[in-house]
Design a protein around this nucleic acid. Sequence first.
DNA 1: CTTGACTGGTAACGTCCATTACCATATCTG
DNA 2: CAGATATGGTAATGGACGTTACCAGTCAAG
Lengths: 208, 208
Amino acid sequence: MDAVNPARPGGRREALVKAAAEMFFEQGYAATSIDAIIARAGGSKRNIYNEFGNKEGLFASIVSENAERILSALRIDEIEGRDLRETLMVFGTRLMDGYMSPALIGAYRTVVTEADRFPGLVRSFYEQGPGRATARLAEVLEEARDRGEIQTDDCARVAGHFVGMVRDNLHLQVVLGLRPPPSEDETKVAVASAVQVFLRGVRADPAG
Amino acid sequence: MDAVNPARPGGRREALVKAAAEMFFEQGYAATSIDAIIARAGGSKRNIYNEFGNKEGLFASIVSENAERILSALRIDEIEGRDLRETLMVFGTRLMDGYMSPALIGAYRTVVTEADRFPGLVRSFYEQGPGRATARLAEVLEEARDRGEIQTDDCARVAGHFVGMVRDNLHLQVVLGLRPPPSEDETKVAVASAVQVFLRGVRADPAG
DNA sequence: CTTGACTGGTAACGTCCATTACCATATCTG
DNA sequence: CAGATATGGTAATGGACGTTACCAGTCAAG
């Protein structure tokens, strides 16, 4: 019953999800037609309606099934470095790369546009991605504070500051299509600058 | 010839622009139909097509005619304070209020969505708003650096850091509809925290 | 009054698209 | 093979909507 069609190694559902994800996140929900998805994925519309009910169901499925993959760029659980500066450099670089990846830029545009239509999806999207990354950084900062390296009242808040500094106006410009994602060198310079300001801003020393 | 119709004090064009701006920025470009605009503004479709050519022309007109008003929240040209900290507090508060205003949140959503269709509009939108505010802050920081109050290689870059810290994850959450705009108190706390970290991060002192 | 330009209202046209229906295969179960 | 089920392909249905057309009423100018 559940055996995969021998002539189709991947299975219809996977092909549909893959094609739909690409097209939704590239062109947006409204601009992507069912016909176009079928044209790319192969098969027939019956497949979509049997499997997902309707277009909204397809969209909900592809977001939840692709969120993990797309947001894995922001899934920064193990951040280690010789010291806090290196840790922040690594974290900031991964954060920048994740936010600037075409996949996440496309997903961001789409999710912003359809926020009203799919409130539940938007919440899980935020919590799995930006929220989780910020929370993880806050934990790292807690540890640094316990070690006496930094000084702050609210680690979660300053974690947000750091994330904001890294995202900067760069993310806005890329989302608006005003400039391409930064190169590796540009990323390094931008992150290093953010780390420098941040570290001086929060480090523990007796300067009132 | 140009005399206003006595029965219609505001003039058709103004009413159309006003209604179209509200609806485009609330619901987005695609989700706003010509019929709906007419239903709110009164008049007939002939008005729109005589005056603006088509829907895209109407959209372009309302963006350019409303950009100044909407972005005036970010038009922070005169920033003065007793000292740099107070100046940054004032600037940051106005920045936060501007970014979180419903008008700008709506415009942001719409512009992000239609970035591909109207690249010229997007550019002027950015340059009149976020770009201009950041550039103005950079000038202020240049002066502070000349006075020896802060120490940095690149005032434009750290101005971006500050703007990013203020925008933080808050902007993202509001844009996604995950939380309401911050209250006056929340704004004050958030900005004060950003100013604190930033000032410590860039101020001139001999701590290598 | 007459002409002309504009306006309001409504209907028509053409297109796009989500959704459903229909038909012909092909695969699986027995 | 019989029958059930899923699949591919294509066409039909129905609605939404941008755009244009048509008709009647209003106002300004001569």
